[in-house]
Simulated assay, not measured.
Amino acid sequence: MVAELMLEAANLMLIGMAAVFAFLLLLVLLVQLLSSVMQRYFPVKPVEKPAISDTTAKGLNPAVVAAITTAVHQYRQQQ
């Protein structure tokens, strides 16, 4: 009696694991297929990097640095 139940439980477990494995394998294959189709018909265009702005090239604006310093100081005073 117990041996029969254990055998049936093992059988159900193996069937369940095989079903999950098959589903995951099918899912991976479909995602790869979809990826290759999308890359073929809708290729990703490279994004051009914007030119370096003048403020970055010249350095930091002293007024902005002063505002940030004041804000950090006030925040630390509240803590």
Rank of each mutant, 00 (worst) to 15 (best):
A71K: 08
L26D: 03
A9V: 14
A9T: 15
V64P: 00
K49G: 02
A9I: 12
G16M: 07
L33G: 03
E4Y: 09
Q78G: 01
L60D: 01
A9L: 12
T55D: 14
G59S: 00
L14T: 12
A71E: 07
S53I: 09
V65E: 04
A9F: 14
R76I: 11
L29T: 08
L7V: 07
I68D: 06
A10C: 08
Q39E: 09
R40L: 07
V44F: 00
L26T: 13
G59T: 00
L29M: 12
A18V: 13
L60F: 00
I68E: 15
G59L: 02
V31C: 07
P43L: 03
P43T: 05
E4F: 12
P46H: 04
Y41C: 08
V31T: 12
V28C: 02
L14M: 11
A63H: 06
Q39V: 08
V28K: 11
G16N: 06
P50H: 02
K58C: 01
Q32T: 07
D54W: 15
A3S: 14
V47Q: 07
V20E: 04
I68F: 13
G16W: 04
M1E: 09
A63W: 08
Y41F: 15
R76Q: 15
A9E: 10
Q39R: 15
L26K: 05
L60R: 02
L34W: 10
V31Q: 06
F21S: 12
E8D: 15
T55A: 11
D54T: 14
V47L: 04
S53L: 13
L7P: 01
M13W: 09
T70D: 02
L5M: 10
T70H: 06
Y41A: 08
I52F: 03
E8L: 09
A51E: 05
K58S: 03
A67D: 03
A57E: 06
L27F: 14
A3Q: 13
Q78T: 08
P62R: 03
A22P: 02
P62M: 04
Q78A: 06
I15K: 15
M1S: 08
G16Y: 05
A57D: 03
I52E: 11
